[in-house]
Write a protein that binds this DNA or RNA. Sequence first.
DNA 1: GGTTGGATGAAGCACTGCTACATTCACCCG
DNA 2: CGGGTGAATGTAGCAGTGCTTCATCCAACC
Lengths: 303, 303
Amino acid sequence: MLDLGRLRALHAVSVHGTVGAAAAALGYTPSAVSQQIAKLERETRTTLLERSGRGVRLTDEARRLAATAERVLALVEEAEVRLEERRGQPEGRLRIGCFPSAARGLMPRVLADLARRHPALDARLTEVDPHLSVDLVGRGVLDLAVAHDWDIAALPVPPGVEQAVVGDDGCDILVPRDHPLAARERVRREDLSRERWITQPPGTVCHDWLIRTLRATGYEPLIAHQAEENHTQVALVAAGLGIALVPRLGRGPLPPEVAALRLEPVPVRRLWALWRAGAARRPAITETVRTLQELWPEVSAAR
Amino acid sequence: MLDLGRLRALHAVSVHGTVGAAAAALGYTPSAVSQQIAKLERETRTTLLERSGRGVRLTDEARRLAATAERVLALVEEAEVRLEERRGQPEGRLRIGCFPSAARGLMPRVLADLARRHPALDARLTEVDPHLSVDLVGRGVLDLAVAHDWDIAALPVPPGVEQAVVGDDGCDILVPRDHPLAARERVRREDLSRERWITQPPGTVCHDWLIRTLRATGYEPLIAHQAEENHTQVALVAAGLGIALVPRLGRGPLPPEVAALRLEPVPVRRLWALWRAGAARRPAITETVRTLQELWPEVSAAR
DNA sequence: GGTTGGATGAAGCACTGCTACATTCACCCG
DNA sequence: CGGGTGAATGTAGCAGTGCTTCATCCAACC
């Protein structure tokens, strides 16, 4: 009888493309996955992987077998979900992926709460880019993702993945304390057209939103500096090198040299929780999503 | 992730009723099956078996899990069949169950032929009662059964099991050489109404057929002796203790003290091959059935 | 042509899963 | 009611599996 572990290895290679990535997803070394599949080949007397360039290619037969493996694994996972559901308590491992600012601004509070209330739950956090996290959930690398999107770029959610709103996070304009606008409480887009900007790298939603929104006022924004981390952006603003659009969540207290202005209308990013549809009934999932939603107002108010 | 071996153990217990029977079907000791299920209980933190009298009872949750396991195992088996089908050559283990007279009269020839033409096929023969063999195929203990039935008692074939005719085997009346009828080549039922009979034990088809057929002529047959094995029956006939109705297949050469009379009409039992529907496409199955059918005329002529 | 990214192979080690045997428990029967 | 039987489970031990680490090999890229 075919072995489930070997089928899982083959399926992982078919999903992730390379032996190494499959191994990483399964928590093994590439050598282990390679050996598993070699054994599967011996047992079935069938060639499953062919070397192709630096990587491997699945044979037709391997693809068929991987498709069956997917159905088998789905059945088994469904059975596990049903067992956990019946016991009712969140438990087992929950691999959570989260974008950086929520990882520091929201998740510590949430994880502490979960750990206190559900000792059998083994929640593990990984910081990942929000656009990657959706795919990682779809492929089963993560059990739960906390991601965000903006009005101009809704999160693309593949079939088989479900989502729920956690809350909305506003963004402010950070300016040096001696900036002409620093005295004002509120500003409009038009007021910002001639500034030097400090943004995240191109391709990030934050960056694209800024470009598109300011272009709509008729000016091409001047990007003076780029930094991925909000704290670096704040430091650049503090040094008087430009102004920045920075989300409130995870921003932390501002240094005295920096002032936050409320932009009208307030740019909002929406926080989502995402999970595989098959795992929707896991108490670990439902309870974590509930906790995210319940704690959000509290976290939001403290920003 | 749930382990396939443990699921198979649970499923086997659910099918066979006891840990011991499940172990026998899987080829393990009861202790092994018991340990597997104990581990499954620990992993799922669910009680699966409850002791009930001398045996065990599955909990509701265990029954659900066993049902899922059945689907999983069916998928996996289907994948294995597809792999073998694609390679085209009969191979792997084929557990054959066969009733006694065919086990000596037909199967040696068939198995030798298969072994010569298909070295990768590991065919294993077990002698089993024909009425048991159908059930054993249905429950997956056997891959292929060779059974037989009579016009008065068709073989009950459960859903999920398929069958094909192998051939028809006639039966003769064996009488002592000095019996009044011994000179005749052919006899009719009416000629036999006052004989002392040597039969198989009550409950066997052979016995029941005799009773019913002779009763139809208006006489209650007199059962003088009972013996399960045809050779013993022949020896009893040779000793002049009665006459017997004995199938031709597997009868072997008769001693000089015994004569075979052709009964008109000739009682016929039909030989069947039976297998699980799921395994129908296995070359090991199709080729073995084909071999049975092809060799039958040859074996039949040599009886 | 060295370097990098990836797969595979060999050695070793921990763990799993089996068997054999012992124990426990429920039923049955004298 | 006590001994016997059938069935499950527990224990010790052993073989085999499956992982990791380290080394090797191959293809692509600079």
